[in-house]
Nucleic acid binder design. Structure first.
Lengths: 228, 228
DNA sequence: GAGATGCTTCGGCCACCACCGAAGTGTGGA
DNA sequence: TCCACACTTCGGTGGTGGCCGAAGCATCTC
């Protein structure tokens, strides 16, 4: 039966520790770059590249190139369901249900490579768009002159970013909405760190808002702390 | 993360064509003997034995010894769900739903090794018990004197079966009820063939009831054709 | 008890594939 | 223009595991 061959092919993709590690790291729907996935799996970049290529070719993952990075994520809910089903069996049935959802701390705020993501990143992006500081057109985001002035006032050296600052959108996989990446996104993140509005957790991409941050976000962006 | 290792281990069990073939053959809940599974997978008995041992040790299958046979079946609904989830992904999503249920023809009537199973086998067993020709006590079935007389009248040479004819029960995986196996079960099957009440399909374990069979079952056992 | 049948264990062979280092490609930043 | 960085391609190595034949139990049949 040729059907069994296809089933075996799919299952064998999951049935390899390095690949299983990467798939599980992507299990909550986030998109992660190849390098980070290699680290998750404890293998070198070349090996990870091979694995990821296979996973994408077989339709388990899809990837998006963003600059020199390549972000991978689970291709479909069916794939996520399959992983969950395998986890249930792997857990042995005594345990009631496997955890396979977004870490609430990461969902609140985190770094997406080197800009802010999660509810925090999305909230900032929303405000900038709402105030007409930024317009979004698909993958590209344009910072308007008023936006540049705003950023400058806030303490970001916009002259270093050139006349057309590099700013792009980045789909937020936990919020399913856009946030800002690119040079502008990175600058915002840096400025938040300078002002000690946010602090990083060790060994994690989670970012938490400090007391000063809640005050500052409220004052400068009009973001209520409860919204995060 | 040790979790990933367990996931990979389970998935790799499915990720092998021979094992995938066997698991899919068992996918409808039937229990099949090792030899038949080896044939399904196109491998020799020794290889199949290794595979089946691994699958059982990991909790994907469970086995029951019955005489010199060993019947394997899917260990739990969770395992079946996992297989189905993999099939969905393997099918590529255009196709709406994978087939993963009992073949209706096999469910109606089939040979379980060399006696009758399916609704036909269960129906005959029911009648014999209801008429107090046979009593069932777990795995063992006893043919009472009246039962021996009945079988003798019907044309089965009960003297050849000794004073305590070998008769055991066999769980029917499609009907989830007992039917008769052992020497008596085989004799009943043979007699049905002699009388041309049933006929075998080529290349299949399916058994269908002939017109003569419907009449005979109605007359001798009181089984209405519609019940099958 | 002898033979047939179904399954398991053992030993050895072979192929596949995960893995890495080194070199190559392309993008971003100075 | 140059360097730094992220990822990919290539070539070669090593280990794991699937596979079978032969031999070894266990069970049923005669």
């Amino acid at each position: 039966m040729s059907n069994a061959l296809e089933v075996a092919q799919i299952a064998s993709l999951v049935g390899e520790p390095a690949r299983a590690n990467m798939l599980l790291a992507l299990g909550d729907g986030r998109a992660l770059p190849a390098g980070e996935l290699a680290a998750c799996a404890g293998i070198t970049a070349p090996t990870a590249s091979e694995h990821l290529a296979k996973l994408e070719q077989s339709g388990l993952l899809i990837s998006i190139r963003q600059g020199r990075h390549r972000y991978y994520r689970i291709a479909s809910p069916e794939v996520a369901a399959m992983l969950e089903a395998v986890m249930i069996v792997a857990a042995g049935f005594p345990r009631p249900a496997p955890r396979f959802r977004v870490d609430p701390e990461l969902q609140r705020g985190r770094t997406c490579y080197n800009h802010l993501a999660g509810r925090l990143g999305v909230a900032i992006c929303d405000v900038l768009v709402h105030k007409s500081y930024v317009t979004i057109d698909g993958e590209v985001a344009h910072v308007l002159p008023t936006g540049l002035k705003f950023l400058d006032t806030w303490g970001i050296d916009v002259r270093r970013m050139g006349k057309h600052p590099y700013c792009r959108t980045c789909i937020d996989w936990s919020e399913r909405r856009h946030h800002l990446g690119g040079g502008v996104g990175i600058a915002i993140h840096k400025r938040c760190l300078e002002l000690k509005w946010v602090e990083h957790h060790l060994d994690s991409r989670a970012v938490s808002v400090t007391r000063a941050g809640r005050l500052g976000l409220e004052r400068v962006f009009g973001i209520a702390g409860a919204a995060l």
